[in-house]
Nucleic acid binder design. Structure first.
Ligand SMILES: [Mn+2]
Ligand SMILES: [Mn+2]
Ligand SMILES: [Mn+2]
Ligand SMILES: [Mn+2]
Lengths: 158, 158
DNA sequence: AATAATTGTTAGCAAAGGCTAAACTATTTG
DNA sequence: CAAATAGTTTAGCCTTTGCTAACAATTATT
């Protein structure tokens, strides 16, 4: 075993940063993030399709492409995948629709997204910023935190 | 132009979900998230290497692999990339070290990570959950929100 | 009806981030 | 010091998510 203590680093310079968590716990943090990233895009597509259907009555591939700032080819490919996953139905040149399962996912995602967005606004974040932050944060917020956010929002502007 | 209003949808069923943002703003939300995802992994590696150096005096590939719950091959490949990016220096079979730029990135990431973690704890989230959520959220929190989180934490446990 | 514009699909490419298996190097132990 | 163990690297594979370019189908305009 080689000695690891090179310069003992004065304990004063270390008021910053918590201790390292135990290896298994630390590993679980990263694993959870990787899992979230696997479903993140799917959720955003399904959620957006649901929003378009609700607000516009139809959800076209071109709308998705411009709202996501992504090429139509990318959207087309993703739609095939959503189809295979049983989340949407699509006929060429027609609006997309959500399956039962797709609707459930859209609803869950939208609810979660709204909780995060409203929480950020209640905290005092400007609307534009809150929307940007919520789009990314939503996929990484546990149910526990979500509940706490919801309570906070309710109690801070009834 | 085909008419989109199929069923006008009773306005009562719509207390949920805000209006759709204008296309350009909506697009920017997703773009920001995609950009964050590009740097996210890099930041986590650099931050972890910094933490290992600080707490353990050295940062070995094997430690990174077990803490990230990823294969050693994956770590080895990523180290080469960090090297090419000028963030770390590495001699084969020796500890990694951070370059000047790597140290700056580690410091910035750690500070941001801590702000999010402490904020969640101040909100009332349990430690384990807070750590998991912070690991994912940290990359999607704007400077504006970060500042607000910091103020909140300070004023809620002095 | 013919043409133009929009919308959608397909093919082919690339980078990122995983993995396993095999080879190699270093360290620890008998 | 030889053998065993632990750590590191490389090669080759796969999936996801993006892109552009070319083509096809639909819808809108003249
Ligand atoms: Mn969303
Ligand atoms: Mn999102
Ligand atoms: Mn972090
Ligand atoms: Mn992280």
């Amino acid at each position: 075993m080689s000695d690891h203590e090179q310069q003992p680093l004065p304990p004063t310079s270390r008021q910053s940063g918590d201790a390292l968590p135990p290896v298994e716990q630390h590993a679980q943090q990263y694993e959870t993030v990787r899992n979230a990233h696997e479903t993140e895009l799917i959720e955003d597509y399904v959620e957006l399709i649901g929003d378009l259907l609700r607000h516009r009555g139809e959800a076209r591939a071109a709308d998705i492409a411009s709202r996501m700032a992504v090429s139509q080819a990318t959207v087309s490919k993703m739609i095939r995948r959503l189809n295979e996953l049983g989340l949407v139905t699509s006929r060429p040149y027609r609006s997309l629709f959500l399956t039962e399962e797709g609707q459930r996912m859209a609803e869950t995602s939208r609810a979660r997204h709204d909780i995060v967005l409203h929480f950020l606004r209640a905290l005092g974040v400007r609307d534009t910023t809150a929307r940007i932050d919520a789009e990314g944060m939503e996929h990484h917020v546990s149910d526990e935190t979500l509940t706490i956010m919801q309570r906070f929002t309710e109690s801070h502007q009834p």
